[in-house]
Design a protein around this nucleic acid. Sequence first.
DNA 1: CTATAAGATGCATGTTAAATGCATCTTTAA
DNA 2: TTAAAGATGCATTTAACATGCATCTTATAG
Lengths: 146, 146
Amino acid sequence: MRITRHSDYALRTLMYLALKQGSVVTINEIAERYGISRNHLTKVVNRLHQLGYLRATRGKNGGLTLASAPGQISVGAVFRDMESSLAVVECVDEPGACVLSPSCRLQGLFNQAQAAFLAQLDAHTLADLLPPETGRQLRDLLAIER
Amino acid sequence: MRITRHSDYALRTLMYLALKQGSVVTINEIAERYGISRNHLTKVVNRLHQLGYLRATRGKNGGLTLASAPGQISVGAVFRDMESSLAVVECVDEPGACVLSPSCRLQGLFNQAQAAFLAQLDAHTLADLLPPETGRQLRDLLAIER
DNA sequence: CTATAAGATGCATGTTAAATGCATCTTTAA
DNA sequence: TTAAAGATGCATTTAACATGCATCTTATAG
Ligand code: SF4
Ligand code: SF4
């Protein structure tokens, strides 16, 4: 029961940008600070850009900034957008994967459970993840100076 | 966000046994009816046996039966027991996977969300998945005669 | 007491999604 | 015109999961 790194990297990126609001941040900087693959992060950033979560400017002195205030960015929304497949069990994706699917109640139960999972994420924004004290600690961990 | 087949196969197996309570059922029969790998299912069954969810008797005329009444078998319990790793994000498993982990609130949020997911499963037993009408339909789908 | 039908177990292999790497293109400001 | 940024497409690697195969153990029928 693991989520994809795409989602986590996306949220890490948005948190980073939120922690450094006001400045423009490059992909290289983020990748270095988190110690993750620059290439992979590029794709995540790209997707976030397409989805409108951040602004990206190319060229010299370019970089990334948040497209909206942290309080406006729902964790649940980011998760839904980034996770490759939201199907908890295969029968949801592939019809005919299981003989029971026409009448299976387990399917419904899993969907309910997933809804509960998402509801928790939906109830929080980027801002909730970064209250002042936590913000300070995270900036320390990331060596962000302000 | 996909669960492992182990969990689903386990639940399918238990449902099958519940639908056929009173009879002894072989692994072969279950694998055939579901159209899944006999080998793989064997391991799932074995694990379920070790965990005490079912009784297994070897030898001729052997087979499987439920160890307790469907109303006593919690879907959540089965899920927790069968899922290889319950960690939603890597930082829970591997310390040092992410620089933020000492202070990250996202981690906590994911744990909360997972708890909500599990709570839904915990709220249901095998019996809830098999009310009379559904039972009839599933027996049809599985060609179980009674 | 032997044949056969069952589950148990360990090891090897296959499959697939995810992650990563690499090369190249495009944009933009100094 | 150059260098620094993001964008894009393709190839490769990795790791978890799933499956296959061979063999062992147990128990019952006959
Ligand atoms: S048992 Fe139910 S939930 Fe599982 S795959 Fe079949 S239809 Fe879907
Ligand atoms: S960002 Fe937070 S939740 Fe994600 S891996 Fe790092 S510590 Fe864990």
